[in-house]
Design a protein around this nucleic acid. Sequence first.
DNA 1: AATGAATGAGGCTTCATTCAT
DNA 2: GATGAATGAAGCCTCATTCAT
Lengths: 219, 219, 219, 219
Amino acid sequence: MARRQQTPADRAAASRESILDGAFEAFTRTGYRDTAIDDIAAAADVSKGGIYFHFPNKESIFRELMRTTADKLVDKVERVVGAEPDPIAKAEAALRTVLEVFAGHRTMARLFFEAGGAGRGFQTELNDLHDRFARLIQGYLDEAVAAGTIAPLDTRITSVAWFGALDEVVASWLQARHPGRLEDAYPTLRAVLLRSAGVPEQRIAAEWRDWPSFPEVAP
Amino acid sequence: MARRQQTPADRAAASRESILDGAFEAFTRTGYRDTAIDDIAAAADVSKGGIYFHFPNKESIFRELMRTTADKLVDKVERVVGAEPDPIAKAEAALRTVLEVFAGHRTMARLFFEAGGAGRGFQTELNDLHDRFARLIQGYLDEAVAAGTIAPLDTRITSVAWFGALDEVVASWLQARHPGRLEDAYPTLRAVLLRSAGVPEQRIAAEWRDWPSFPEVAP
Amino acid sequence: MARRQQTPADRAAASRESILDGAFEAFTRTGYRDTAIDDIAAAADVSKGGIYFHFPNKESIFRELMRTTADKLVDKVERVVGAEPDPIAKAEAALRTVLEVFAGHRTMARLFFEAGGAGRGFQTELNDLHDRFARLIQGYLDEAVAAGTIAPLDTRITSVAWFGALDEVVASWLQARHPGRLEDAYPTLRAVLLRSAGVPEQRIAAEWRDWPSFPEVAP
Amino acid sequence: MARRQQTPADRAAASRESILDGAFEAFTRTGYRDTAIDDIAAAADVSKGGIYFHFPNKESIFRELMRTTADKLVDKVERVVGAEPDPIAKAEAALRTVLEVFAGHRTMARLFFEAGGAGRGFQTELNDLHDRFARLIQGYLDEAVAAGTIAPLDTRITSVAWFGALDEVVASWLQARHPGRLEDAYPTLRAVLLRSAGVPEQRIAAEWRDWPSFPEVAP
DNA sequence: AATGAATGAGGCTTCATTCAT
DNA sequence: GATGAATGAAGCCTCATTCAT
């Protein structure tokens, strides 16, 4: 199959992608308000005016970034989770995946958890993001309840708490002066969370053995 | 008892306090970066220049606010907790107190949890704040472990997770379009957290009855 | 010969030049500290922000102005002086050139001699400027000593004194309420300075006749 | 004779003096524009408001300082000069006195020569100051011409040149990174200036021997 | 006389956005 | 599609001056 020549449209798309990459890099490094369009332009190796061809304003870049980054993560979680048969295993898989991804991409985590830095205007966006993850977890918990694996409980609040716990553990790791390996926190976090949902102690202990080891990540 | 005349120093202190109040109000409403000195001046009913008589710059106001607000909360938590004999009860009391205070002062919660909006420069300050609360919790958990009330576990990570869970529950309440009563979330959150630390189920159920009802708060 | 189209870069350079011109005009009229960026913007017919595209701050404009203006003057002096064979004639030519230029550009003189108004930060720059001219003169005096035209003397101090004398004569002319023609001061100043270096009286009298008349200048 | 008790008026006068001293110190150190009223208040150990009791505004302090400082110097010059019989000796004495005083009070020199830093508003004041000294010199030169000690010449321009030469020598000494002793410059400067007015070479050489040595001064 | 808190105009600089080419 | 020069609205902060006590 003949490879098409690179059309202008291709180049435009590439440019757009480049801007998003640069913006991601800049935002995660400096935060929203402290990142100037010039910084993004420099990071993306694009002119300032060029940015405004692809995006109507700074805000839209950030929003798109937030949306697509979350999409990617949710996709990955759902892919990994899909393979798991049992709801608790699913929740575990989700938890593990998020931790794994963040462990490998410290900066991405920053974007997620420090997006508050973006100013009041993004709270909604950020909250939706949190919500999305919380509901993902909630879904698994609901399934677990339905399957009788765990006793009925307020899955909404529990999932929010789970997400918060995860968030804070990652955040505290992110800003630690001498961070250990985030994976080392996993067993404890996992046990704490499963226990919090009423998963039987023996199951918590048992399940763990089946897990493959974490991939190597450099914080 | 004769009331002393109001000295100029008194009035200056009052003015300073007024600025802090105005700043608190403005920061919690608009966020750090989106709050102009003019806004604070207006809220405090002080001239722009007057602010600079009391504070060297915008940042220092925010830092002072963060410090003193946290101090007040920690004080209150320790006072309430001091009355409790048993470590788990202490942890519960701390949790309850924080929730209670936040439920009553939605804005204060905002300052705490959305301080990220202040820009990269405050991350350290904010992290220290989180740390402070996490260690508060950790202390109670350590006591509980020492007292044999709960099985040994990584109290550092657990306390971080607790704080994160609390944080996220409050945050999700803060931004909810139609927030219920934060206190309604308390029983579930309490159960989830206690369970997560391995507190026996019967204790979780028992303890609860003894608690007085939440004071009325208007979110 | 086809005239190239005016490129954006050309226009940018023109704009930059315009800013320098406006700044020159404003600084020499009002002094550094009393000249606001707004004044420069108005004088240059550029927006305030436009200035910051070309210069990082107010100071840099002033420094550039000082540097380039001095460069131009030194260039001119050296060009004129180059034509003179004998060292005393060179010194004379330098003296005359500076006076001439200043007579024609009262404002430039102001920039040079009143730059002190720029604040303590510029003293170094200003001193270097003075030094530069003093050393120019010193060079000619050294040549004259080497050539045996004048008796050996401390040329460093003498050149500083010359420059100071020149400076003060121009300055007193600049601020005179009803200034005469600066050129009218030339014969006396010339005689005084040459005499001060020990140039024989007859030479002082003789040399003068050969000089062309000053060009007309409007103070 | 009974010593009067210190009256309030005395204390007020002392306060006023203290302000002038502090202002002198501050202005000479930082320049006019870069000296805040607060700086003066601090240096004078007086409150900001107190300053405005004694002076209507910042400018007036500076003007008074310029006036009185000049007065003192002129007084001293005239006292020293009065003892001299011959006009050239008078000019010499004036020159020497000024150099001497400046050598001892580097800061005072700064006030005089860098007063340009005070902004355009003081040019007049500063020029009058220069004028005053120039006319002092001119007086002696005129006397010398009248006495036949030197040949007739434009004493106005010559005196301006003298003053400028003196000014620049002091200024270059002031800002030198490793200043030698200003007095060391005296013999050359003296010879240069006397020569410039046509004082016979042998007199220049002779007169010098009679002078007492400079007092010790610490630059 | 003196204090020091308060005022407010004005200055410098930043930066998202626009626009002619 | 892209460039980069230009705009102008804000923002933070300084500081001479005023004023109640």
